[in-house]
Every structure is written in structure tokens, then in C-alpha cells.
Computed example of a mutant assay.
Amino acid sequence: MIYDIRHVTTYSYETQVSFARCALRLEPMIGDGQELISHSIEIRPKPAERTSRRDFFGTLTESVLIETAHRNLRIDSRSRVSLTRQPPARDAGSPRWEDVRDIAFEATSLGPRSPVGYIFASALAPVLRPVTEYAAASFPPGEAILSGAADLMRRIRNDFRYDPKATVISTPLRDVFEKRQGVCQDFAHVMLAGLRGLGLPAAYVSGYLRTMPPPGQPRLQGADATHAWVSVWCGNDLGWIGFDPTNDLMVANDHIILAIGRDFADVSPVDGVIVGASKQKLSVAVDVLPVE
């Protein structure tokens, strides 16, 4: 499957901004059944300086310096990717979760794909006893890692209500868990914290999800969205497998990876600092179009 992706981020400021420095993580990753065919970013006003580097996790991070005074900042990212994923069935054979946990703790590599870097708590996905106990219900002794992770994903989808007004990025995980509501990044953080509380390696994934209009209705421009899900290390043979707790889906060819990290703080598509405005309005429009 080949997709054309357009991701437009627009900031409108109450007063003029004299300086801005942004970090952009908008180039889709290569690997995990995903190939990057092309990518470009247009920025208005034009930056005075643009530099890029690969972070520890392999994400291309572009640093942008804007010195032109402005009231609006527009970042227009366009990509084409090819996907050829074959996720395993939920009930496919896989190691016991206790064996995966033990092997992960014995890992000697400290590279970005090593499971050991994703076992421990992170700032936005702390290990909390109630969340660990919630996850443990999906992992009785001897349970296979795939079926246990799929069951936890299903339970989060059923037990938590999607509500974009319920949380903001700074809402603590404890509050999300107690209220049982939030958005995709909250559900991903809950699943991460639960798995890590059991000693299982899990990574946060940001990207895009292709959405389909109801039968007989036209597709709306900007109707697709940035999305978040979880990648679980399932042993040396299976490696990293994607689970989408917001939709109770095994990650296949409708999920496009932008970045991978420990939690949202590692993978935010756009962040930075500005000088000169007290209030701002953010709008994001995403289109994910299959190439015929």
C-alpha cells in the first residue's frame, strides 16, 4: 500500500512574534515494513536557518530558526510512503510473557532497538501500582505475550472513553487512569505504564492513521489525524509488534510511523519556543490518501 500524506500545522498568534525556534519530527521513519519514497517540508515565514540530525531513536529531527516577525507560522509537510506489514494474529504462537521479561532484562545491547531501553518508567508514563495491577489481569502466569498484550489493548478500548476535551498533554497519567477517559496518547501511556510495571518492554509510537468515511459519504479533507499507539517487544523471534489501544487494532498497513520513543515527550511532531506572543491558536490538518 502506498500513501500520500499531507500534514499542515498552523500557529496563529495574538500579537507579533519576533523569534521562533522549532523542532520538527515530521519525516516518516524507515523500517518495520515501511519505506519512505519522498518527503518535503515548506515553512512560512522562511527560516533563517535549518539543520537536521538523527536522535537516539533514529528519528530525523529538524531544528528551524525563524527571525522574521510574523503573526502566523505554517508548516506544510508532504510525504509518500509504502507499507508492507504482516502483523501476527492475536492468538498466534508466542513466548510466555515471563520469558520475554527475563530476556529483556538480560539484554546486553543499549541500541535504540534494544528492549532494555523501554522497560523502565518515563516522565509521561510512570509506573503506578493501580495501572500495573490493571495490566496484570491480562497476564496470568504462563500467558503468551501476544495474547496478553492484545487482551490489555482490548480492555483499554472497552474501559476508557475517547474524549478530546477530557485531557491535555500535561494531564498526569494517574488522573487519566482514574477518570478512564482521554485521547490516543493517553491510552498509549496507560498501556505503556501497565506493561512496564510488569517488566515488559514497550515503546510509544507517533504517526498517522488512515480513516475511512461512512459508506456513501465523501471523504473530508483534513479528516485523518495524527495518532499514537504502542509497540511491544515480543521476544527475539517476533521482535517489535504494534498495538493500537484506541481502536483495538493490531498495527498493519493503515498505520504510518513518524517517530518512536519512550513517551510523547520524545516524539512530538512540532515543538519549540517563541518570543513575543502571550496567546496562540493551533490548527492541524492531516490527509492520508492511498495512491491508486
Score class of each variant (00 low, 15 high):
9 T>I: 09
15 T>C: 07
16 Q>G: 15
17 V>H: 08
18 S>F: 08
23 A>Q: 12
26 L>M: 09
30 I>T: 14
31 G>P: 01
32 D>T: 01
34 Q>R: 06
35 E>Y: 12
42 E>H: 09
43 I>E: 06
45 P>D: 00
50 R>G: 01
51 T>Q: 07
53 R>S: 04
55 D>Q: 03
55 D>A: 02
56 F>D: 00
56 F>N: 02
58 G>S: 08
62 E>M: 05
64 V>Y: 10
66 I>S: 04
69 A>C: 01
71 R>K: 07
73 L>P: 10
74 R>N: 09
78 R>Y: 03
79 S>H: 07
81 V>L: 06
81 V>K: 04
82 S>Q: 13
83 L>P: 13
92 A>W: 10
96 R>Y: 00
107 A>W: 03
108 T>A: 13
109 S>G: 08
110 L>K: 11
114 S>T: 07
118 Y>K: 05
119 I>S: 05
124 L>T: 11
124 L>K: 14
132 T>L: 13
134 Y>Q: 05
135 A>L: 03
138 S>M: 07
138 S>D: 02
141 P>V: 14
142 G>H: 10
144 A>G: 15
145 I>L: 13
146 L>F: 12
146 L>A: 04
151 D>W: 02
152 L>S: 08
155 R>N: 03
156 I>R: 03
161 R>T: 14
163 D>G: 05
166 A>N: 02
171 T>S: 12
174 R>Q: 15
181 Q>V: 00
184 C>M: 08
185 Q>D: 11
186 D>F: 09
189 H>R: 04
193 A>Y: 07
200 L>T: 09
201 P>F: 11
201 P>R: 12
204 Y>L: 03
205 V>R: 00
205 V>N: 06
206 S>V: 06
209 L>H: 03
212 M>V: 14
212 M>D: 13
218 P>D: 12
218 P>G: 01
221 Q>L: 14
223 A>P: 00
225 A>V: 07
227 H>E: 12
228 A>H: 04
232 V>A: 11
235 G>R: 06
235 G>H: 10
239 G>H: 01
240 W>P: 13
241 I>N: 14
243 F>Q: 10
245 P>N: 01
245 P>I: 00
248 D>Y: 07
252 A>R: 13
255 H>A: 00
257 I>L: 12
262 R>V: 05
263 D>A: 06
265 A>K: 11
270 V>M: 02
279 K>N: 13
281 K>E: 12
285 A>R: 14
286 V>E: 10
287 D>L: 09
288 V>A: 13
289 L>G: 09
290 P>F: 00
